[in-house]
Design a protein around this nucleic acid. Sequence first.
DNA 1: TCTATACTGTGAAATAATTCACTTAAAAAC
DNA 2: GTTTTTAAGTGAATTATTTCACAGTATAGA
Lengths: 203, 203
Amino acid sequence: MKDLSNNTIERICKIFGYLDALQKKEIGFISSRELAQGLGTTEYTVRKDLSTLGVTGHTRRGYDVKLLKTQLGEKLHLTQKRKAGIVGLGRLGTALLDYEKFKVDGFEIVAGFDCSINKLERIRTQIDVFSVNDLKRVVAERHIELGIIAVPEAAAQNVADTLCAAGVKGILNFSPVKVTVPEGIVYLDMDFTNALRFIAARL
Amino acid sequence: MKDLSNNTIERICKIFGYLDALQKKEIGFISSRELAQGLGTTEYTVRKDLSTLGVTGHTRRGYDVKLLKTQLGEKLHLTQKRKAGIVGLGRLGTALLDYEKFKVDGFEIVAGFDCSINKLERIRTQIDVFSVNDLKRVVAERHIELGIIAVPEAAAQNVADTLCAAGVKGILNFSPVKVTVPEGIVYLDMDFTNALRFIAARL
DNA sequence: TCTATACTGTGAAATAATTCACTTAAAAAC
DNA sequence: GTTTTTAAGTGAATTATTTCACAGTATAGA
């Protein structure tokens, strides 16, 4: 079941998130059409995606919201809690440290890192913060699987190398440069400027 | 030239950003292969994308970095400055207010908005901040084309509606819910949790 | 219980995206 | 000046994705 396309995974992740909203509204069943509408895709694609994953709905009722959430969670390994660490505790990094939504979705920020001792001392947060010098140790001790890069671009590649050497398995990069990671490490960019560029190009 | 696929636009945007890095390294020419490697795609795709846009390179030298930047900027309408406003001045919103990289790339944050008067008074930033009550007026006065949503999810749809009514043409949504916008408005999600989910699914 | 309905699930068709293979051309080397 | 090399540009082939069409079926209503 590892032969899912990136597009499918991305859509399924969106569905997964959307189901939360439906549960809040106490909607028990949802059809592929409504799901598609809520997500900006087509009913065909939704059905294909779900069917590819082997999850199944009900004739004339659609998909059971609660059940679907569970099933998707299992298929995409989203049920197990994942521990993450954030490197770079500037404005963005500290905002991410306390980002509530991560917790709700099973991602736990268990450490923050920065190279500036000053910054480490000034930061007010519940999360433990460390010097990047301790990164390797802390990643191992706390079983951190995901590294979040929020440092200035000049430092990004270095931080990525350090994180990979420390043993993280996935990296989410908020810095505006693309970094290279070893084979087997899952990597994703969150480049704000690029997002605005994309919008501008579509205007 | 509006018949570019989203994939192509996304890749071109990435190339556009990558060219900055090359210019900083004072690299004058770059081949499709190197470009592809730096971006995690293939040389074929790079050549197809660029050729689709009608920009052209040099035999045995590759693409002229400076020229390519200019050409891509023109083709994607990235040369003209774009004004943006941020709604929601929490941790994330204020981090975005001062995000340096926007300026470099021709995006100017010309206003911040929040509904909390308290917050507006406490904020220390160079950017002018306003109550959301003044949003419509300020968007018009300052010719804001892009709206950035950084409010809690409960308020997101409302803010999106207000922004669209005020006349913005594109929306970048950092809240974790998908909002719906009228036909013709360019819309993009930046859902952090979803990004982590995507990584977790790929682990 | 029966019937009409509104869904899913899926193979097939259509469309889109990527990769390949090869032509062409400029630069570098000799 | 000639040859070799390297890389762009591009139509064709391949592969992937999306859409369609419709059979099958559980549900709601009567």
